[in-house]
Design a protein around this nucleic acid. Sequence first.
DNA 1: CTTGGCACTCCGAAGCTGGCAGTGCCAACC
DNA 2: GGTTGGCACTGCCAGCTTCGGAGTGCCAAG
Lengths: 349, 349
Amino acid sequence: MAQVGPSGKREREILTAIVETFIATGEPVGSRTLSRASKERISPATIRNVMADLADAGYLEQPHTSAGRVPSAQAYRYYVEQLTGHAHLSQADEGAIQQYFHGVGDVQEFMERTSHVLSLLSSGVGVAVTATGPRNALDHVYFSRLAANKVLAVVVARSGLVRDRVLRTACDFSQLELETAARYINENFRGWTIDAVRAEIDRRLQSERSEYDRLMQSIEELQRSGALGPEPAAQAVFVEGVANLVAGEEDKERLRELLRTLEEKERVVELLAAYVDARQEAVRVVIGLEEAVPQMRNFVLIGAPAHVGDEVVGSLAVIGPTRMDYEHSITAVSYIAQLFDKILNEKEY
Amino acid sequence: MAQVGPSGKREREILTAIVETFIATGEPVGSRTLSRASKERISPATIRNVMADLADAGYLEQPHTSAGRVPSAQAYRYYVEQLTGHAHLSQADEGAIQQYFHGVGDVQEFMERTSHVLSLLSSGVGVAVTATGPRNALDHVYFSRLAANKVLAVVVARSGLVRDRVLRTACDFSQLELETAARYINENFRGWTIDAVRAEIDRRLQSERSEYDRLMQSIEELQRSGALGPEPAAQAVFVEGVANLVAGEEDKERLRELLRTLEEKERVVELLAAYVDARQEAVRVVIGLEEAVPQMRNFVLIGAPAHVGDEVVGSLAVIGPTRMDYEHSITAVSYIAQLFDKILNEKEY
DNA sequence: CTTGGCACTCCGAAGCTGGCAGTGCCAACC
DNA sequence: GGTTGGCACTGCCAGCTTCGGAGTGCCAAG
């Protein structure tokens, strides 16, 4: 288990207060400020003693002698852990969000709005990505000939994710061949995961060569052209709210690096993949992203997977400065993650 | 015709020189600097006289007395007009671009890469949007039942544009009904513009009520749910390179507004719609975007429509600060606009 | 028309200063 | 021992002043 924070009760209270006022004001917090803010009158001197202990324990840092104290990453971790977790969004927020997602049936569209809403509710960027395909269950595919050696492939997953792409194929399929191939896949593999489909196609190609010959070969060719393969880089990635970052960053060069990184979709996908655990539902808070992405020193990720039924359709997150309203952002991420299932899961086949 | 610039030859030379050095250095340019830079030795005093005239004519502005001169919007307009237009990208650039688009057959993907490449080649953001549907010719549609009252509609345009969306329909169509409807549309309307299809459906619904009854009604319902309708807001919009703007903007609030605006896709679509003329091929340079979008004072749009065959598939643009390498950006936009047709137009039905 | 000269303007960088917020330590108090 | 007031010390920052440089406008001479 992660650390539990400082031992004494007063130490914990003061640490929490420091984190909160620093988040609110953005300036190093001094003993006097704290003393005045606290209900029970504690003198600045006492607080100074406690602060010295906290600094020794690694919870506080001072920009220089004779400035206030600033919470360290460790302090933020303690602070987040210590949050009740029972907070709820305000009625107004919940209503607004519900409103915003009203009538959306499309997973992609849902993702897009998710990133937007998150950027509005937090002081960071809202991020949403669709799940990497292979583990998703297939609903059906559709192929159609566009031109010579050009095929439109539409893959529909059980979860409702739709992905269309234009393939360039080595051989020039007729519309009829394509329909046959699609029918074969749909009749044989509905409900399989895409990975399994691929593997099975390979297997059948090996063993039943004689019988299916022509058909299987076209299917294999289609697959090789990428019919089933939204490879990682091709996932849909939605990032919104970069404007929020401008306020919090005074260093221009850093801001630029930051924006550049957020535009590289692969990086964003990686980040979410590394930190958001698809198998469990919980909201994950990661403080200190500099290990994964050096440009993101002093940044925080609050992420959760998005489920529809048992299928993982993607993940969503807020990425923002350490100085943000954690409680609000966490509840927002959590609430929207649950909305995915609530709104999109209407499978009544 | 637009203005032709100052009358005298020397005036024009000096104006051009001022614009160029200002673009290069970013600082108000003074008479001495110019004098030293010019090949024919002209004394600073002479230049000062000319500059005074140019200032009177509205080509130059001075931030304050005793600073150098800064080109006005009018000066930039003259400068752009005056560019030969015969410039070409370097071999290296052309090669790199070709490389970058290699193997792309998908219009959307092409658009996405376009925005990326433009952001790399210019000091502004690269923008690409797919064309508003109605005027595009239909290739075919595909409908498929996802769940109760939920239909997947895929619309493929002649140009290669593919658009999929999930519809929520009032009545619960069976797969068979959907296939029938799709077949009807494909057999009757292939090659029509989407607008025309809509109108014709309405007409037939009125007149041939007796015969087609059930079928036409389902088609009408599908259409009402948005089957054919990528309405303006739903266009695909790609904006990349916002990081480029950080360097050029020192005012934080303005930068923030700017980023916010660029994230509102409708605004971007509007902007391109207002300034890029789909009917002609030319690259359009608009200096001074503040009329359309107040936040974009001192910004410039360099845009062109993207054609595939006779179809307009969208438009692309660079949006950046007035202080940018016009020649390079213009040739880049122009070159990529032509690539659309070259790479995507392989219609051999 | 061009040029050198000259007085004038204004910005911005550099250096200085005082005040303020905050710390650490100590001695006293409960 | 925990708590408190006092006090000396530190370092930053904001405001002021100063000064030099870059640039202009105008004028008179070539």
